[in-house]
């Protein structure tokens, strides 16, 4: 089938709503295009050592593609076909690259449903890259602080008391944004604090490293996840302190202060 014929097949598929309703020749061609892309994604999963998966037969790949995109036959759920056939130059190249963009999620759903063991992540699995990768249990240490010693709790309180005033402007911004639950790249952050997301992420990590090194020196017996929990509690505590300060500065309550009297008579 040449490019013109394949393009006509895609248009028929859009107009008639389903692969099952177009001619046999056209259906076989489109199933082939879809499953070629499906297989290339599966090869990618296999190449990265995540499994030894075999893609389903061509009609099944095409069925998975149609079902995912049509949102399980929702009445108006086929608008993605309009997207596919109306974007860019509206030629075969753009249709095929559009199929590829959609097929990534189709393959991901198929792997999750049919081969869940392919993407398993354990608690002790190292995540991310860089010199100091972290485990999942370090990212979200157990919040139960029953095992925390009095010295450790005291270290948190003392560090907050001693360092909150000497933090650099960018460090204050990091901890404040963190306490507010905002994203560093959120609208208005640069305008409000004067720092971009790259600097904020950098100082966020530097603060962690600085306090983590201090905690390791003081409490060498701590396991990595316990150490992470200690430092994250310190960062949260420092953020809350800054948040309260900034709230008080922005809301000048004078309930207990002197009342300003304006003498109109003069």
């Amino acid at each position: 089938m040449n490019a013109e014929e394949e393009m006509a097949a895609w248009r028929n598929w859009k107009d008639l709503c389903a692969l099952a309703l177009i001619s046999n020749t056209e259906r076989i061609q489109l199933q082939q295009v879809i499953s070629d892309r499906f297989r290339s994604m599966v090869r990618k999963v296999n190449l990265h050592g995540r499994g030894a998966l075999t893609a389903p037969p061509n009609p099944d790949c095409a069925h998975l593609f149609e079902s995912y995109c049509a949102m399980h036959q929702r009445r108006d759920g086929k608008k993605y076909k309009q997207w596919l056939l109306s974007r860019g130059r509206q030629d075969l190249d753009t249709v095929q690259s559009g199929v590829m963009l959609l097929i990534r999620n189709v393959v991901r759903e198929w792997v999750r449903d049919s081969h869940p063991q392919t993407a398993e992540v354990s608690l002790q699995h190292f995540l991310g890259q860089g010199a100091t990768p972290v485990t999942l249990e370090e990212l979200l240490p157990d919040t139960k602080s029953e095992t925390r010693t009095a010295e450790q709790s005291e270290w948190i309180e003392e560090t907050i008391r001693n360092e909150v005033e000497s933090l650099e402007a960018v460090e204050r911004a990091v901890l404040l944004i963190r306490a507010r639950g905002s994203v560093f790249s959120a609208a208005g952050i640069r305008e409000e604090f004067g720092f971009g997301k790259t600097a904020l992420h950098k100082y966020h990590r530097l603060l962690l490293e600085r306090w983590a090194a201090e905690a390791r020196d003081l409490f060498p017996e701590l396991a990595p996840a316990e150490g992470a929990g200690l430092v994250l509690d310190l960062m949260d505590g420092m953020g809350k302190k800054l948040f309260r300060q900034s709230f008080a500065e922005n809301n000048d309550f004078s309930a207990f202060g002197e009342m300003e009297v304006c003498d109109d008579a003069e």
């Binding site: 999963v45 995540r50 792997v111 999750r112 398993e120 992540v121 999942l136």
Partner: peptide
């Protein structure tokens, strides 16, 4: 919370790969 993060992370690892 760790269970929720683990489920999300498994999906994200595959997402990033593709």
């Amino acid at each position: 919370e760790q269970v929720k993060l683990q489920m999300w992370m498994e999906d994200y690892a595959l997402y990033q790969l593709l």
